[in-house]
Computed example of a mutant assay.
Amino acid sequence: MNRRIVALSALLLALSGTATAAGSSPALQQCLDAANTTAAMLGCNAQETKVQDKRLNTAYKTALQAQQGPRRQQLQDVQRLWIKYRDANCAFAGSATGGSIDQVNGSGCVLDMTQTRAEELENLVGP
């Protein structure tokens, strides 16, 4: 029983550090605070990832429209490569131990990287 409590505490600590690192939303933090299972934590990450993915797609479309000439194609190429990198990087992060923490780490990685990329794309065109 004590091992389960310690493992869950470590899992929550690892996840909260990941969420905070990306400047998570209050809704995500509230969800994570209430989550007491791996499945619940994954649900929280999935919910916020949908929000950030929508943000990323909007930022990408705006940034793409702002580009001219060869820069437009370059941005398309870069974005395709970034998606491949994100997926490979997060698959790697999500396979480190073979335990349930891997799923949380992998989904947290996708969330963090998606949020960061959305910010990068937003910064291409300014506020």
Rank of each mutant, 00 (worst) to 15 (best):
R55W: 06
N123I: 08
G23Q: 07
L56P: 08
A7H: 02
V104N: 07
L12P: 02
L32R: 00
L111C: 01
T116S: 14
L124C: 08
R4E: 12
M41G: 00
A27D: 10
T97N: 05
A27I: 06
K84V: 11
L56N: 07
L8W: 02
G106P: 01
A63W: 04
G98C: 00
C109I: 02
L15M: 13
F92E: 06
L28K: 05
C90M: 00
G108W: 03
T114C: 03
N2M: 13
C90P: 00
Q65L: 12
A10H: 04
R3M: 13
S107H: 08
R71Y: 12
L13C: 10
V6D: 08
S107N: 02
V78C: 13
K50N: 11
T18I: 14
A93I: 10
I101C: 00
R4A: 10
D112Y: 15
G23W: 14
T97F: 01
G106A: 03
A40M: 03
G99M: 03
Q29M: 11
S107I: 04
R71H: 12
Q65M: 10
N45K: 11
D112G: 13
I83F: 07
D77T: 15
R71L: 13
L56F: 04
A27S: 09
K84F: 01
Q68Y: 06
T62I: 10
E120T: 11
W82P: 06
R55A: 08
Q52K: 14
L111A: 00
A39G: 10
T20E: 13
L8I: 04
Q29C: 02
S107D: 07
L124F: 15
V6G: 01
L28F: 04
V104K: 05
Q68C: 08
T49Y: 14
K54F: 09
V104P: 05
L121Y: 02
L13W: 07
A96T: 11
D53G: 05
D112S: 14
A39N: 11
R3P: 00
D112E: 15
Q103I: 09
M41V: 06
A22Q: 14
E122N: 12
R55L: 07
N123Y: 05
R71K: 15
D112Q: 15
G17H: 07
E119H: 11
E120S: 10
V110F: 05
R80L: 09
A40I: 06
P127D: 09
L111K: 02
T62P: 06
P70G: 12
L64M: 05
L64P: 01
N89G: 03
L42D: 05
Q79G: 00
E122V: 10
S24E: 08
A21P: 01
T18M: 15
P70V: 15
G94H: 03
G98E: 02
M1N: 09
K61T: 04
R72W: 00
A34S: 08
A63S: 05
L75A: 00
Q68A: 10
E119Y: 11
Q74D: 11
T18L: 14
L124Y: 14
T97S: 07
G108V: 05
A118R: 09
M41Y: 06
A21V: 10
N2L: 14
C109N: 04
A118L: 07
L32Y: 03
M1L: 11
R71G: 03
